[in-house]
Amino acid sequence: MAKKKNTNYVDLKTKPIPEGKHLLEVDNLKMYFHTEDGVVHAVDGVSYTLDRGETLGVVGESGSGKSVTHMTIMGLIDMPPGKIEGGDIVYRGESLLEKSEEEMQHIRGNDIAMIFQDPMTSLNPVYKIGRQVGEGLRLHRGYSKQEAQERAIELLRLVGIPNPEKRVNEYPHQFSGGMRQRVMIAMALACDPDILIADE
């Protein structure tokens, strides 16, 4: 059943990709961190493109900037100390670097979602799993609390969590590490994003 969307924002994923453009274009991206000990070149000239239906693997040794690249795409780097020194991130023909924080809040989780590396630090320990899985649905899709809870149960079942009707009312500390990772996957899939970033 189609739900009411946020009327203040038009999903970018409903816009056609301009001719000659890719779904996502990371072009010579440079993200530096300005610290008391000097400038850290965390991401220094990363470029790649992604089209619909493609799977892209970004590989590199620990500390090479993979996670920082993804966090920059999501607009989750604190600035300062971070600063984009060059390049661009273009999604469906529009630069994400020109978006306001309010616009990025609509894009995150809805158009572009991310499965974070450490679920225990990403999940809020004081909120039940169902609330956290359903949060994006309420924000981006206009679901009621009950509708979001029902969809959260479906999503937990989809990612292989047994007895989701019960587990949806439990807290993150009641889940094993592997189960918490599955919850993160369910959260990322909730709004059917255009792009799903899996950080390791």
Results as ranks from 00 to 15, higher is better:
residue 59 V to S: 09
residue 41 H to L: 08
residue 103 E to K: 09
residue 81 P to M: 10
residue 44 D to W: 05
residue 63 G to I: 12
residue 44 D to Y: 03
residue 116 F to T: 06
residue 73 I to L: 03
residue 95 S to I: 13
residue 107 I to V: 13
residue 71 M to I: 02
residue 118 D to M: 00
residue 113 A to Q: 02
residue 59 V to Y: 03
residue 92 R to L: 02
residue 62 S to V: 14
residue 56 L to C: 10
residue 115 I to F: 03
residue 75 G to F: 02
residue 117 Q to D: 01
residue 112 I to E: 00
residue 114 M to V: 07
residue 57 G to E: 05
residue 89 I to Y: 02
residue 90 V to D: 05
residue 62 S to A: 04
residue 81 P to L: 08
residue 77 I to Q: 15
residue 97 L to N: 06
residue 63 G to C: 10
residue 103 E to S: 01
residue 112 I to A: 05
residue 72 T to E: 09
residue 105 Q to F: 00
residue 84 I to M: 10
residue 109 G to L: 07
residue 78 D to Y: 11
residue 107 I to Q: 00
residue 107 I to S: 01
residue 114 M to T: 06
residue 71 M to L: 15
residue 62 S to T: 15
residue 105 Q to L: 06
residue 84 I to P: 01
residue 88 D to Y: 10
residue 86 G to V: 05
residue 79 M to W: 00
residue 43 V to Q: 10
residue 86 G to H: 15
residue 98 E to T: 13
residue 46 V to Q: 02
residue 108 R to P: 00
residue 73 I to Y: 05
residue 112 I to K: 04
residue 61 E to Y: 10
residue 82 G to Y: 14
residue 63 G to F: 11
residue 106 H to D: 05
residue 71 M to P: 04
residue 62 S to I: 10
residue 76 L to T: 11
residue 102 E to T: 08
residue 86 G to R: 15
residue 52 R to S: 08
residue 57 G to V: 09
residue 42 A to S: 15
residue 39 V to P: 03
residue 107 I to T: 05
residue 88 D to V: 05
residue 64 S to T: 14
residue 78 D to G: 00
residue 118 D to F: 00
residue 107 I to Y: 04
residue 72 T to K: 01
residue 120 M to G: 07
residue 110 N to D: 11
residue 81 P to V: 14
residue 106 H to E: 09
residue 117 Q to L: 04
residue 109 G to E: 01
residue 42 A to F: 11
residue 45 G to W: 04
residue 100 S to C: 04
residue 107 I to G: 00
residue 88 D to E: 11
residue 67 S to M: 06
residue 96 L to F: 02
residue 81 P to D: 12
residue 69 T to K: 14
residue 51 D to M: 08
residue 117 Q to P: 01
residue 78 D to W: 03
residue 41 H to F: 08
residue 49 T to Q: 13
residue 115 I to H: 04
residue 65 G to A: 07
residue 61 E to H: 12
residue 122 S to Q: 07
residue 114 M to N: 03
residue 120 M to C: 02
residue 73 I to F: 06
residue 68 V to S: 07
residue 58 V to S: 08
residue 100 S to F: 00
